[in-house]
């Protein structure tokens, strides 16, 4: 089932990690301390990270290793943060990015 993998034949049982709260589009969600933002969102079934400027097409995790920038979001007010390689921090504010930032009022 999509979401966190609690039991795994090779990796074993998932160890309980310290939780932190992050704020996604204004809603509080729980994440594991130190995990990547993209992983925390995916664990909650969130996979749309941003919409492109011109065609307003959605983008999500594509390479998972910081190379493609598809997973960019607005983090603590800063746009274009690659969420697949940026760890969560307690109280982090994460917003879907529209165009260059979440208000979508940026130029191309």
């Amino acid at each position: 089932m999509a979401g966190r993998i609690d039991r795994h034949p090779i990796l074993g049982k998932r160890k309980a990690k310290e939780e932190v709260e992050i704020i996604f589009n204004g809603k509080k969600i729980k994440a594991e301390k130190g995990e990547m933002i993209a992983a925390a969102l995916q664990a909650k079934g969130i996979r749309i990270h941003r919409y492109t400027i011109k065609n307003k097409e959605p983008r999500g995790v594509f390479c998972g290793i910081g190379q493609c920038t598809d997973c960019a979001m607005e983090v603590n007010g800063q746009p274009n943060v690659r969420t697949c390689v940026t760890p969560v921090e307690a109280g982090m504010v994460i917003n879907t990015q529209y165009g260059l930032n979440r208000d979508g009022d940026n130029i191309d």
């Binding site: 999509a2 966190r4 998932r14 990547m36 992983a39 995916q42 999500g60 995790v61 998972g64 697949c84």
Partner: peptide
């Protein structure tokens, strides 16, 4: 092909084996 849910096999592998999150069913 750019829709969220299309991803590299390596991305899926990183998600499940490193982050321990399954990105779908």
């Amino acid at each position: 092909w750019t829709l969220p849910g299309v991803m590299g096999a390596g991305a899926a592998q990183t998600m499940i084996n490193v982050h321990r999150v399954l990105p779908g069913d």
